[in-house]
Structures are given as structure tokens and as C-alpha cells.
């Protein structure tokens, strides 16, 4: 990806694809509290997600993992009653600062959702590069072709769809749709990719493909993944954060650290109970 468009780097004033090929970004959530109306769902959560690494957020349902993830790319504020406190810094810059554009924050910090959401009437090809169109980035047909192939390859979908790129994205199977969404997110070269239980609706084979994709993204983009699947967290992530919310209290991070250590020797009893399947 980094070398893909190097031939065109010179003599271009207009924004083109080259400028959007970026290094993975380090993401820091600092002292995040979040509310829906009067209901507090996160209480002073801080987490550092290292550049190029895969960080897994685990914990039982309703502990605020997804809310936390949505705060990381400003999707949280789409809900009318939602509010928050704290800062989210992408390589030091607060994405909630007044000078920051919401569109550029979301382009830098992409997101893959629990339910695959390709644009159903758009072709696979157009779905993959829909981010370019939405961001108003112009590209020649050759550049687009390259980008489509590269993104679909990264999402390990290319071989399955290369002969039917003009067919609608809605016609793919669930697992393929989810990988199309990953390809679509990767096509805008995000520095961070957030994944909200990307495999919870997928069959084991598709899950494996997605996990392989995550594996191959290591070093190219920072990945933050919410998962209910302990084995998945153990397989794909290098860092892990365990969220927990006791009854009627906001969610907090109980334990955070290297995944291996956390699964082998959890410091906290609650973490130990959870990773060993005793509750949750």
C-alpha cells in the first residue's frame, strides 16, 4: 500500500490518493466518561492503544465497550441524548477539539460494525471505493482499479469477487459483506480501524478469514476490536482491556495489559473469572 502510488507523488497539487496513504496512528483515550441522557455508562476510562498493534476490548454485555469504541471515532455523538467528558488523542491531537473536523476524524479512524452494512444497491467495486467518493477525492480509473484490488486483497475477498465486481454489494453472503465493509474502510487508508464485534454474525470460516485479515493488518493500521469471543481476543490481539460494569454503575476498565499475560495470569479475580468463562 505504501508503495502503491509512489509513482504519482510528484507534481500534484490536488489532493490525491498518495496523501491518504498513512502510517498507523497511536490512539489515547484520556479520562473518558460518557452518558446517555442522565444515565452514566462509562466512568473515567483511560486507555492507550499502541500504533500498529491490535487491542481487544473484552467484557460482558452492557459494560460500555461499544460505547467506548464509538467514542473513539465520534460516532457516539450521533445519538441525540449522548454526551461525554475527556479527550481522545490521535497522535497527540484531540479529535474532539473545536478545530478538528468530524469528517477527517472519522476518515482517519475507520469503523467496521457488528452488522455488515455495505451500500446494497452499489456495486462491489463502487462499495469498495465509496469512501473516496464520500470524501470528494478524485482518482483516475487506473488508480481506482488498483485501490479496489489492493483493498479487497487486504480484506481477503479479492479472489471471491474479482469476476463480479459490478454486481451489487447486497448480493454477497454475510461473511463476504463484512469483509467488503473492511475493504471499504481500508480503501480510505485509515490510521486506526475500529471493529465492533465484526464476527458475531459470521460463520466460523468467515470468522477465520476476518481474523486472518486483522492479523495481516498488524503494523499497517492500528486495530481496536470489541469481541465477546475470548478465543478470538486471545488469537488476534496483543493488548487487551477488560471492561466491567457492576449492576447500575457505569463501566470501567478492570484490567489492561498484554493479552498473553492477561489470559495466563490475570491480576484481578474478576478478570480471571471472566477469561476462564466463569461468568459473562
Amino acid at each position: 500500500m505504501k508503495t502503491l502510488f509512489s509513482a504519482r507523488t510528484e507534481n500534484h497539487d490536488e489532493p490525491d490518493l498518495v496523501e491518504h496513504v498513512q502510517q498507523p496512528g497511536g490512539l489515547v483515550a484520556d479520562n473518558i466518561s460518557a452518558w446517555f441522557g442522565d444515565h452514566k455508562v462509562l466512568d473515567r476510562v483511560s486507555l492507550s492503544m499502541a500504533a500498529g498493534e491490535v487491542t481487544a476490548l473484552i467484557g460482558p454485555s452492557g459494560c460500555g465497550k461499544s460505547t467506548f469504541l464509538r467514542i473513539l471515532n465520534r460516532m457516539h455523538e450521533m445519538i441525540p441524548s449522548a454526551s461525554l467528558f475527556g479527550e481522545v488523542r490521535l497522535d497527540g491531537d484531540d479529535i474532539y477539539a473545536p478545530s478538528q473536523r468530524i469528517t477527517s476524524a472519522r476518515r482517519n479512524i475507520g469503523m467496521v460494525f457488528q452488522k455488515a452494512n455495505p451500500f446494497p444497491a452499489m456495486s462491489i467495486y463502487d462499495n469498495t471505493i465509496s469512501g473516496l467518493k464520500l470524501a470528494g477525492i478524485r482518482a483516475t480509473r487506473a488508480e481506482k482499479d488498483l485501490l479496489v484490488e489492493d483493498s479487497l486483497r487486504k480484506a481477503s475477498l479479492w479472489d471471491e469477487v474479482k469476476d463480479r465486481l459490478e454486481q451489487p454489494g447486497g448480493g454477497l453472503s454475510g461473511g463476504q459483506q463484512q469483509r467488503l465493509c473492511i475493504a471499504r474502510s481500508l480503501a480510505v487508508s485509515p490510521r486506526v480501524l475500529l471493529m465492533d464485534e465484526p464476527c458475531s454474525a459470521l460463520d466460523p470460516t468467515s470468522t477465520r478469514r476476518v481474523e486472518e485479515t486483522i492479523e495481516s493488518l498488524r503494523g499497517q493500521v492500528t486495530v481496536v476490536i470489541v469481541t465477546h469471543n475470548m478465543q478470538q481476543a486471545a488469537r488476534v490481539s496483543s493488548q487487551c482491556a477488560f471492561f466491567l460494569a457492576a449492576q447500575n454503575t457505569p463501566g470501567v476498565i478492570v484490567e489492561y495489559g498484554a493479552t498473553e499475560a492477561m489470559f495466563a495470569h490475570p491480576q484481578d479475580d474478576r478478570t480471571s473469572d471472566y477469561v476462564n468463562g466463569r461468568f459473562g
Binding site: N73, M75, M78, T103, S104, A105, R106, R107, G110, M111, F113, K115, N117, P118, F119, P120, A121, M122, S130, G131, K133, L134, A135, G136, C181, R184, S185, V188
Partner: peptide, 27 residues
């Protein structure tokens, strides 16, 4: 127009008009 597709467009850095054009109007 499904909320999932709307969020999908926003998550790609779409403006409101971009989201409307690519999700709401086709739908």
C-alpha cells in the same frame, strides 16, 4: 433508510450531504 448504512457512510468520513446522496436517496 437503515441506520446501519447511514452509520457506515458517516464512519467513512461522509458529510451529511454525502451520506444522504449515497444512502438515503438511493434507498
Amino acid at each position: 433508510a437503515p441506520i446501519g448504512e447511514r452509520e457506515g457512510a458517516y464512519a467513512l468520513g461522509a458529510t451529511r450531504w454525502g451520506m444522504i446522496r449515497s444512502v438515503v436517496l438511493p434507498f
